[in-house]
Amino acid sequence: MSRDPIFRPWMDQLLKLLGAGAAVTGLYAVLMVYFGLSPKTLSAGYMPQQPVPYSHALHVGELGLDCRYCHTTVESAAFAAVPPTQTCINCHEKIAPTSHKLDPVRNSFVSGLPVQWIKVHDLPDYVYFNHSAHVTRGVSCVECHGRIDQMEEVHQVKPLSMGWCLGCHRNPASHLRPVDRVTDLDWGLDRTEEEKAAQGNEIMKGLGLIDESGLPTTRLTLLTNCSTCHR
């Protein structure tokens, strides 16, 4: 007595292919999640359109304004203040007083309501980041924000992910510079890695992160403590 088998011989070959396909798909999905959902992909390059086409390249790069002229609280507070409209008006009362591009600024000055700038470098609420703690210890603006002085429009360069933060917190030496050079975004670009490390180590000694013999101190371990950033 015969019966008709519901599956055919060739389907077993298909089964092998399906198995291999499932394995590949699984791997693909994992890699997609790992790379696709990473802040490197999702956040870096973020460039919202601002209400005013303010050019850092012009103001900082060409005209040579210091960062701290506008972001006044950066050395003393956790938050790097976005300048009030008055700061803009200081110059733009005289310079380009009729430019339509500056309409929102003048409107703001008249009405007293702030310009609706859009925050580019936005950390999650559970991250405690203190600008003054970094800036006054020799971490330059450029380390996190990139060459703002060359940007027509500000965009996020670094991923600002936790792993990226840790990269520096674990091994700060080559990211440090003399405190008075912090806002010079084009300073020391020609230094070699060895020079950076040597210079950084001296600064770390000064900060008490490593001792005279170059061994890490307890202070250094605090840089990677959970509660340093998650308070």
Partner: peptide, 15 residues
């Protein structure tokens, strides 16, 4: 295993 097809499955008795 797993297999979908076996020649055994052609036999009704083999159920």
């Amino acid at each position: 295993l797993p297999r979908l097809y076996r020649p055994h499955f052609r036999s009704d008795r083999f159920r």
